[in-house]
C-alpha cells in the first residue's frame, strides 16, 4: 500500500475546562487510503466531532500525530473541505455566493470557479436556485449547498460531521444516495461521521467504530458490498448482516 492519505497515530485529546480536564479521545489510530469512503461510527458524545475537527486542523490535539497527504496537520488545509452538522449558510448571500465563499477566503480567482459552482449546483439538483437566498430552501437543499461549498475548491479530502442527522428519514436516504453519486463522480477521500449504523454501512468502504468516551477505535469493519450502491441494497441479507454485526459491536 502506498502512503496513506490520512494517517492518525496515537492521537489523544483532552479538553481543558475551567474546573477540570475532559478526556475526549484516549487513543486513536487510523490509516485511510486515497479515495476511500470511511465512516466514523459511535454514540453521541464519544468524540467523533473532536476527531474530525482535529483532522481538519480546526482543533489542536493534545498528543500524537495527524497527517494528511504526508504532512502534519496544524491548521486548516487548502485541500480539505468540511461539511458541518448544520448547513451554516450565510443568510445575506445568495446560494451561488455561498458556494463561492471558499474561493474568496482562499484567495483564488473567482472567474475560474464560477462554472464549477454552477456544475456542482446542477449535480445536486439546485441549478434553479443559484440566485435564491438560503431561507427559501428546505433543510435538505441547504445541506446540499453546504456540500457544494465544501467541494468548490476541488479538495482531495472531504470531512463530513453528521451532515444529514437533522433531516427526516426519507430526505436522509435521498441525500445518502446523492452523496454516493457525487463521490463516484469526484472520487474524493471522505471521512463521514455518523451515529446511524445503516447510513455507515450504506455509504462506506470501511467503518471505524468508536467506543464511548474516552474514545478509542474499537473495531474496523470492511463493508464488502458492490458499488455503485442503490437504496435497494438495504433490503439485501448481506447489508443487514453488516448492520447486525455493527450493532453487536456497539452494544458491547
Amino acid at each position: 500500500m502506498t502512503e496513506a492519505h490520512v494517517r492518525v497515530e496515537n492521537l489523544r485529546k483532552t479538553y481543558q475546562t475551567r474546573t477540570d480536564e475532559i478526556e475526549a479521545i484516549r487513543e486513536v489510530q487510523m490509516d485511510v487510503a486515497e479515495g476511500e469512503f470511511i465512516s466514523i461510527l459511535g454514540p453521541s458524545g464519544c468524540g467523533k466531532s473532536t476527531l474530525l475537527m482535529i483532522v481538519g486542523g480546526l482543533l489542536p490535539l493534545t498528543s500524537g500525530t495527524v497527517a494528511v497527504a504526508g504532512e502534519n496537520v496544524s491548521k486548516p488545509r487548502r485541500d480539505t473541505g468540511v461539511v458541518f452538522q448544520a448547513p451554516v449558510l450565510m443568510p445575506w448571500r445568495t446560494i451561488l455566493k455561498n458556494v463561492m465563499f471558499p474561493i474568496e477566503s482562499l484567495g483564488l480567482r473567482e472567474e475560474e470557479y464560477i462554472d464549477r459552482a454552477h456544475e456542482l449546483l446542477e449535480m445536486t439538483g439546485l441549478s434553479g436556485f443559484a440566485d435564491n437566498v438560503p431561507s427559501e430552501l428546505s433543510g435538505g437543499m441547504q445541506q446540499r449547498v453546504a456540500i457544494c461549498r465544501a467541494l468548490i475548491h476541488n479538495p482531495n479530502l472531504l470531512l463530513m460531521d453528521e451532515p444529514f442527522s437533522a433531516l427526516d428519514a426519507m430526505t436522509r436516504d435521498l441525500m445518502n444516495q446523492e452523496l454516493l453519486r457525487i463521490w463516484e463522480e469526484y472520487k474524493k477521500t471522505v471521512l463521514f461521521v455518523t451515529h446511524s449504523i445503516r447510513e455507515a454501512v450504506f455509504l462506506s468502504d470501511r467503518v471505524f467504530v468508536m467506543s464511548p468516551r474516552p474514545a478509542v477505535i474499537s473495531e474496523i469493519v470492511t463493508i464488502d458490498l458492490p458499488r455503485p450502491r442503490e437504496l435497494a441494497i438495504e433490503e439485501t441479507p448481506e447489508f443487514n448482516e453488516y448492520v447486525a454485526h455493527l450493532r453487536g459491536l456497539i452494544e458491547h
Binding site: L58, G81, F84, F101
Partner: peptide, 29 residues
C-alpha cells in the same frame, strides 16, 4: 455571530480580517 459559522470560515482558511468583513460585519448589520 454563530461560532459555527466562524469555524466554517476558518475551515476554508479565512483569516481574522475575512471573518470580520464577510461574516461578523454582515451579521452585525
Amino acid at each position: 455571530t454563530d461560532p459555527l459559522m466562524v469555524r466554517m470560515a476558518h475551515s476554508f482558511n479565512a483569516n481574522r480580517w475575512t471573518v470580520f468583513c464577510k461574516i461578523e460585519f454582515p451579521n452585525a448589520l
